[in-house]
Design a binder for these strands. Structure first.
Lengths: 138, 138
DNA sequence: AGTTAGTTGAGACATTGTATCATTTAGGGT
DNA sequence: ACCCTAAATGATACAATGTCTCAACTAACT
């Protein structure tokens, strides 16, 4: 399992809380706010604490498994493996996933140039969705 | 001025608070947290209120002038015109700006395909900076 | 199974963001 | 230049969000 490897490699333990938080993000299939993660994760672990969710989300970000994303109404988290290419409406926050991306091949180039170990990327286009566009017309 | 046009076009007023907040972001040259914006903006407008900063940042995002960016320690805001291509370390949050980008030409394609009016984009590569990379070695 | 350091949950606390409302102000009309 | 009005502001109270501490628990090594 991805989660287990990533945690172990970085010297962290694989705990129930961490498994259940990762699972919540995986099954949701969309970015979740910390509060939503807590609610979802409690279905598989009723006693889960709020502080632990925050701690775990931060940890999963550091470990590279999860990516934080801003939006109207606060930050949301999603698995780093899904939906890294999207259109997002700056007005209403609507999102639309893109199939794929023209930036894939740059990883080695960047590693060479900056000594950065690139593991993933996020490509977002900002603008207005069809609805907001129409509404903003006049 | 960019600010004035963008606000007027969307039917909002151009006020002292808005000017001073935008100026704070412009002169900072790096993403600022709301608290930092407040502090910076108060230099040019001592009586500025906290609530107004939040209101203004959200407004400038909706209007497309400012972009929110998550990171260790909360969301930060920067002008949409600067630094939209970067390397960011998932561990310590260090950033490195990139000169330019391979995704520029996609705007029309996306407009055609999805009816989206693309105004800008964000391309971020995630991974480990040289320092964190070394430290994570063992 | 025993040991121990990493992790957790509860709750207090601090910080950050929002709603309300009286007062001020931008900016169009006259 | 001066009104007029709706939009915007600042203060305050409030709600939500995130952090810290610490005793209890547990993953994982032996």
């Amino acid at each position: 399992m991805q989660l287990e490897r990533q945690l172990r490699k970085a010297g962290f333990r694989v705990t129930r809380a961490r498994r259940v938080v990762a699972a919540a993000l995986a099954t949701a299939g969309r970015p979740l706010s910390p509060a939503e993660v807590l609610a979802a994760a409690r279905r598989g672990h009723p006693g889960l604490g709020r502080a632990t969710v925050y701690r775990t989300l931060n940890l999963l970000v550091r470990v590279g498994l999860v990516v934080p994303r801003p939006g109207p109404g606060g930050v949301r988290y999603s698995l780093a493996s899904e939906g890294m290419h999207r259109l997002v409406c700056r007005n209403c926050g609507a999102e639309r996933l893109l199939a794929d991306c023209p930036a894939g091949g740059l990883a080695e180039e960047l590693a060479r140039r900056y000594g950065f170990q690139v593991e993933g990327h996020l490509l977002e286009f900002y603008g207005l969705c069809p609805d907001c566009r129409r509404r903003a017309k006049p």
